[in-house]
């Protein structure tokens, strides 16, 4: 899917209509990004807050700098920071659910791939908790919001080079941290 590059004038006479259109166009993808990070319940609220914040800050959107989609994901990410507790709880939950799936699976050959995948997802969730928050932001903006590293930088207000190095660091940490987590005992005492 080609990334869209819509850059509307948010100070136009009909800005209210423009925002209605923006909502229809992007609300679903912003909600999906938020829900994957902080859970569906918190995401419902944060979605509205993202667009209310965008409206209040519309003077500050610079079409020359980034697509409006990038700007909206930046606002959504800033709001996620205030819900870090929700985010960590959500990742904990995902890690546990995956372990349960792995734990109850039968050792039949057709189930092995599915179990491997579920185990990986669970370990990823645990590893994301251990990742520095700033690195997690760049990683998830690229993985879940579909931004390029440079766009993730624009969304977060950091130079593109910084975003790229954070992404690189996050990905190497996850790929290597995984091996350690996989052999570590589970932290919540649950039998897997």
């Amino acid at each position: 899917m080609a990334a869209d590059d819509v850059r509307p004038d948010l100070l136009a006479e009909d800005a209210a209509t423009v925002f209605g259109d923006l909502f229809d166009r992007y609300a679903r993808s912003v909600h999906r990004y938020l829900a994957r990070r902080v859970g569906e319940g918190a995401a419902d609220d944060l979605l509205a807050e993202t667009f209310v914040t965008a409206w209040a800050a519309r003077r500050r959107y610079d079409p020359g700098r980034a697509a409006v989609r990038v700007w909206l994901f930046g606002i959504a990410t800033n709001l996620c920071r205030k819900h870090r507790r929700d985010e960590l709880r959500n990742l904990d939950l995902s890690a546990r659910l995956s372990r349960r799936e792995v734990g109850t699976a039968l050792p039949e050959s057709e189930a092995i791939d599915r179990v491997d995948a579920a185990a990986r997802v669970g370990r990823l969730a645990s590893a994301l908790i251990a990742l520095p928050a700033a690195d997690r932001d760049v990683l998830l903006l690229t993985a879940w919001a579909g931004l390029t590293p440079a766009e993730a930088g624009a969304a977060l207000g950091i130079p593109a080079g910084t975003a790229r190095s954070r992404l690189h660091r996050a990905r190497s940490a996850l790929r290597t941290a995984e091996a350690r987590l996989a052999t570590a005992p589970t932290q919540d005492g649950e039998t897997t």
Binding site: F23, H31, R32, E40, L47, W55, N90, L124, A143, W144
Partner: peptide, 30 residues
Amino acid sequence: LDDALDRLNADVRVSDERLGEAKDRMLAEI
């Protein structure tokens, strides 16, 4: 890693009703 990122929390949903409520909140603010 990409595969695990694609799968993690991929089953989230949003109802049209929730979207509508969020849009109403934005329009009320406007």
